[in-house]
Design a protein around this nucleic acid. Sequence first.
RNA 1: GGCCCCGUAGCUCAGCCGGAUAGAGCAGCAGCCUUCUAAGCUGUUGGUCGCAGGUUCGAAUCCUGCCGGGGUCGCCA
Length: 586
Amino acid sequence: MNIFALFEQRVADALASLVASGALPAELDVSRAAVEPPRDPTHGDLATNAAMVLAKPAKANPRALAEAIAAELKRDPRVAKAEVAGPGFINLTLAPGVFQDVLRAIIAAGPDFGRGLKQDAAPINVEYVSANPTGPLHVGHGRGAVFGDALANLLAFVGYSVTREYYINDAGAQVDILGRSAFLRYREALGHDIGTIPEGLYPGDYLKPVGQALAERFGRALLDVPEEVWLPTVRTAAIDAMMAMIRDDLATLNIRHDLFFSERSLSQGGVDHIRATIDDLRARGLIYEGRLPPPKGQPVEDWEDREQTLFRATAFGDDVDRPLLKSDGSYTYFAADIAYHRSKFERGFRTMIDVWGADHGGYVKRMKAAVAAVTDGKGELDIKLCQLVRLLRGGEPVKMSKRAGDFVTLREVVEEVGSDAVRFMLLFRKNDAQLDFDLEKVVEQSKDNPVFYVQYAHARCASVFRQAREAFPGRDFGPARLAEADLSVLQDPGERDLLRLLAQYPRVLDGAADAHEPHRIAFHLFELASAFHSLWNKGKDLPQLRFVNQADQQSTEARLALVYAVRSVLASGLGILGVTAPDEMR
RNA sequence: GGCCCCGUAGCUCAGCCGGAUAGAGCAGCAGCCUUCUAAGCUGUUGGUCGCAGGUUCGAAUCCUGCCGGGGUCGCCA
C-alpha cells in the first residue's frame, strides 16, 4: 500500500471530474502532477503541485485552480484537511484511519511489505563483478559486487524477473598471461628453481595451488612440449581455479550469480557469435573500413595509422567510431562485448544493467551505442559506475603496495569485519561517490556506526516483544492479534513520525528501483532506525510512552503493532541490502 | 586537448526526472545521566548549495560557459 501512488490516482480522479464539469479543458497532460511528502511535516501528510503544473496549460490562476482541486479532494473521507498554500500547493492531512490502514497492511505482509509493488515481471539482466579471472577480488570489486547484488535484490523484490550475470573475460591476452604464470608455478611444483617471477606475469601466491594441481594431474608431461600445446590446457585449468576462488570470495558476501557467461564461448563452438554480430551490423551499414584520427592531447608513441574495421558508434552518440579487429586480425574486447550484449537481448532482456568500476567510464558511450545498434533501439542499457573505495584503519589509509600481489583482498576484509558491515557500508553511499571504508569504525558498537545503529533498532524491536511476553505472560502478540488492536491511541509526535516513515517505505522502494539506486534504502532505514531509537529514548523520561506498559494493555497492543511494523520494514530493507536483521546484538 | 564523474555546514555525506524556510551524522556549544527499555540522552550554533549567465510562476536540481578536484583517452580487459 503506497499512499503516494494512491493519492496520485486520487488527484488524477479529481482532475478528471473537474474536466467533466467543464472547469478544466480536456486533453491536459497531467503527468507532471506529483504527490510527495511535504518538506515541512507541519504542512500535513501529503502535498501536490497539480495546480501549479496545470495552471498554465489550463490558462487558470494557480491558486484558484488549487482551491477547486482541494474542494474536490475534500469530498474524500480519507482526506481530513486540504489546504492551499504558497504559490498553489495543496497540502493534505489524512484521516488517522489511513495511517492505521497502512500499519495493518505492513503487519499483514511482515518482511514482505513492498514485495511485488511494481506488478511488472519484465525480465531485467544485471551484470556485475565480471572481474578478470586472474586473481582474488579486491575491495574495489567488492563495491561493484555488493552494489549489483543489492540492486538485483531490489529489482527482484519489487517484482521484476531478474537474472544476475557475470561475464568471464577468458579470451584475451590477460588469460594467456595467467596461463604462463600458472605454468611457472607448475614447474616450481616439480622442483624447478623459477627464481623471481618475471615482469609481466602474475606473481601472487594464489597460483601456487594451481601449479601443484597441474603437477599432480600431468606429472612432467607438459614440460617438454611447446607452449602452443600446454598453454590451452594450463590456461583452462588456471581460469577454472580462479573462477572457483572468485565464486568463493563472493560467497563470503552471500553473492551468487545465476549465469557465468564465458567470453570465449562467443567465438568457440559451432557458431561464431562475434562474426555473426559484425555481419549483422555490416548488413545494416554500420561497419566500414577506415582510418581513425590519432587521439588529441597526449600523443600516442607507437601510433600506427592503418585502415581498420570500424563500428559506426558516432551514429549513436559516441565521439569516435570504434575498432572491432586488432592488427593481428583477432577481435577486440569491444567486438566481443557487443556480441555479448546482443546475446542478452536475444535472450529476452530489453532492460540491461551493467555495473562497472569508474575507471571504465570511458567505455559507457560506445557500449550504449552498441546496444542501441544491435537491438535496433529496442534495448535499454543502464551503466552504473562505482567509484573507488579508500580503505582506512582508524582514520589512516591502509597501505596497499602495488608490488607483487601484495594487496588487501576482499576476503580479508570480509573475514575481519563481517559481511554485514561490508555490505551496509558499501551501500551507505551513492554509487558514483568516492567512499572511505574504515575497518575500525564499521565494527564499533555505537550510534556513530550506521550498520550497528540500524541492526540495533531491529534487535530492540525484538527485545520489546520479549519484554511484552514477560509483562503479559500467556498473551498473544502475534500479527493477527496486533492487526486488531485499537491503533487510534498512537498520537505522540514520535509515533506519528514512525508512521510517516513507514508509509514512505513503498515510495522509497519504487524510487530506488526506478533510479537503480539501492543506497536510498540504506538511508531510509537509517532514518527509520533513528526515529525508533528516539521514541525509545523518550520512554526513559516518560514511562507512559514506553512500548510495554503493564498498566495499560490497550496502548501496549497498539505500540506493539507499531513496533512490529518497524521491525518488518527494517527486516524487509535489510533483506534487500543483503544484511542480516538480528534479534539481539550480544 | 576531447569525454565522463564530482564540487552542498569546520569534516563525511544525503537531497538532484524543478517546488515551499536546503537536511543528517560527526565535530563545536549548552544542559541532563544514584539510568532501568540495551552501547548514553536532549537541545542548539553553523550554509552566497564552486562562480557567472540562461530557461520560468519557481533552480542545489535543467541548459551554457568558466574555475577547482578525480578518472579516462586506437589494437589491453
